[in-house]
């Protein structure tokens, strides 16, 4: 049931409540791209973000805090980095599958068809985006001990992802200084490069490598935090 909700209902809900409404307000992006096409990659990533929440809650937070089944896993003969990488890869793959399925469903609702490379580029950039986002969720899942704190954190994070990474609006609409700061956070960089590639086939590789390196360092840091939290 929850799988059907993620694959069908959430993309539909996002399309009805966000895309269908916003495209009547914005109509075009600042680069004259139809808004529903411009926002499409962001909506797909939003579905992946929502599924990553569910996956990480199920696989790590709930397992660690409520079911207590996490400890036997930590006793297996693997380093904490390997363990964190395992959670990371599993969450990225699962969230990406939900993202790809939602992309296919959402494309039926668009008024114009997408180029074939959209279907290739969105998952590829999605991996980098999720690499960062899942790392952030891993940090929260490892550091929080109470469900109320965890929920508060992910709600705040969700608002940040919607409004602070350029998923729905371009940063030019924000106050200048705030727009600059938000535009240079690693999540925004990935999304901005994805849109750059899709709509002007231009990529700035530095802004691709920076989030990737950030992701690797973050994974290592998560392994360290996990080791400290578990006192192992």
């Amino acid at each position: 049931m929850s799988t059907i909700a993620f694959v069908v209902l959430i993309p539909l809900l996002l399309h009805i409540t966000l895309t269908m409404v916003m495209k009547n307000i914005f109509i075009y992006s600042l680069d004259k791209i139809p808004y529903e096409i411009w926002v499409f990659p962001g909506i797909v990533l939003l579905v992946s973000i929502l599924s990553a929440y569910a996956v990480l809650y199920r696989d790590l937070f709930d397992l660690r805090i409520h079911k207590k089944s996490f400890i036997p896993i930590t006793l297996a003969p693997f380093s904490k980095f390997f363990l964190v990488a395992g959670f990371l890869v599993a969450a990225i793959v699962e969230s990406l599958i939900y993202g790809i399925l939602s992309m296919i469903i959402l494309s039926f609702f668009l008024s114009q068809s997408l180029y074939w490379y959209f279907y290739l580029a969105i998952p590829l950039f999605g991996v980098i985006f999720l690499f960062l986002f899942v790392n952030l969720l891993l940090t929260i899942s490892i550091l929080t001990e109470r469900i109320t704190t965890f929920l508060s954190m992910i709600i705040i994070l969700f608002f940040f992802m919607i409004f602070g990474t350029g998923i729905l609006f371009e940063f030019e609409f924000y106050p200048k200084m705030l727009g600059i700061i938000l535009a240079y956070n690693p999540f925004s960089l990935v999304l901005s490069e994805l849109r750059g590639f899709l709509f002007s086939t231009h990529i700035n590789w530095i802004w691709i490598f920076v989030p990737m390196i950030t992701g690797f360092v973050w994974t290592w840091m998560n392994a360290f935090i996990l080791k400290r939290t578990l006192k192992q």
Binding site: L63, K67, S69, I71, P72, P77
Partner: peptide, 27 residues
């Protein structure tokens, strides 16, 4: 040499810690 040492150990905690949403054999 934690990883190698862990291979020789089996631990049963006091509290029940199997995943309730998996079958016994899956756990």
């Amino acid at each position: 040499r934690r990883n190698k040492a862990m291979l020789s150990l089996g631990f049963v905690p006091h509290e029940l810690d199997l995943d309730p949403w998996l079958t016994l054999e899956e756990n």
